[in-house]
Design a binder for these strands. Structure first.
Lengths: 225, 225
DNA sequence: CCGGCTATGTTGACGCCGTCAACATACGGT
DNA sequence: ACCGTATGTTGACGGCGTCAACATAGCCGG
């Protein structure tokens, strides 16, 4: 059906365009714009300009500017998921136990992972506010998403919570909506940190707030010891 | 200093403008635009058009379109505070106790108020998504806000939580950041409901999610019974 | 009572944006 | 070898935020 081959994939360089990865190039330019200035900075003409192509050329690959933003948003979500997964791995792969006080409890690793991905979520929001805002703002009508597939970061969270459930550590009263409640808490905290009143707070106090919120989430979700 | 008197305040009607409440009129038009289409719909020229005035006339009262949006945002925050206060009053003024199972506990009224304002917050987000998004999105740099004064809705929350603290019901471990943690949770939930994956959920299930999150917040913040 | 000063509003223009229609071109399969 | 189609270009349109220059209205000091 397609006359032209997909991406060339041989020469990584631009190859004078025309038959290149224009879509990806535009999207990447959009990502960079979003990184600096948030979703409103994803200007179609500017992305085209940076790629060195006519403005209307973008319309061969994106239905509208909104579609471009959507692609950028998807990419931002991927970055987020990578960041969280890395954090989860780093927290999980600690078989020596170093000097931590209590690590013999069952599921302690899962709890550590939960904390790690929560912190990673916040870190992402603070270090990449533009990208965070881009996937955070839900374009007029987001409609149907499939969570674990469309939002891989959510999959990381549900995975860790399933670990906890397997260890019998999840309070059955709150278990059903645990992923959403937990996500909402840290997501809300991230937003409050970005443009809410917490935006003018020193990092150490912010860490304390995160600890406090994490404690609330944990004592709210875990079964009483 | 001011040559012209402030708002006439005698004739409520427009009085052919020129010396009227143009600023308020523009802001109100902006509120209506935001109500329908969110923050991006607050178009300066459109607001001026609706008020029946030249586009640049707005610049006598607002430094820029951003300033107009800021005014709309402030108004939206006022609406939110009113909604929450009304809910708190309605929940608090129930001296008979009707058929509730356990209402003799100290601070039960405060807990009810906390639930009420949380629900009110969510209600506002769902029934006025445009206004909610408008005050939610924190224009590039919100900078210095004073919480209880600039964000009256936050004052309502801290008030209820102080009630709980006075009754000795707040867990000292999480008390310090309780307002922020609680706000973050319900705020995040609201956002997830608006343009997150929860946007396609039936209302009854949404109520269950709210209940679950509320349970998490309560059992995370209150002292163990 | 009046002349002028200032707050207020208007006109016209500029540059940027998203988007459309019409046109040009380079592949790649037949 | 050719022709169709996917791809990219040019030019234009209307809408936006914003600025400079101009017009007016109404209060204040004389």
């Amino acid at each position: 059906m397609s006359v032209h081959p997909a991406p060339p994939a041989d020469a990584v360089v631009a190859r004078a365009y025309h038959h290149g990865h224009l879509a990806e190039a535009l999207r990447d330019a959009g990502v960079e714009l979003a990184r600096v200035g948030g979703p409103d900075a994803v200007v179609l003409r500017e992305a085209a300009r940076q790629v060195g192509v006519s403005a209307t050329a973008a319309y061969r690959h994106f239905d509208s500017q909104t579609a471009l933003v959507e692609a950028v948003k998807q990419r931002a979500l991927e970055y987020l998921a990578e960041h969280m997964q890395a954090a989860a791995r780093a927290a999980g792969a600690r078989p020596d136990g170093a000097g931590s006080s209590a690590d013999a409890l069952p599921g302690a690793a899962a709890v550590a992972r939960l904390e790690a991905i929560g912190r990673a979520y916040l870190e992402f929001a603070l270090t990449e506010p533009g990208l965070f805002r881009t996937f955070c703002i839900g374009l007029p009508l987001m409609g149907d998403v499939d969570l674990d597939s469309d939002v891989p970061a959510f999959g990381v969270l549900t995975g860790v919570l399933e670990e906890l459930a397997a260890d019998g550590l999840l309070d059955p009263a709150t278990a059903q909506w645990a992923p959403i409640s937990a996500w909402a808490s840290v997501h809300g905290l991230a937003i409050l940190c970005l443009d809410g009143p917490l935006s003018v707070m020193p990092p150490d106090e912010l860490e304390a707030i995160f600890q406090g919120t994490l404690r609330m989430v944990l004592s709210g979700l875990l079964v009483r010891p």
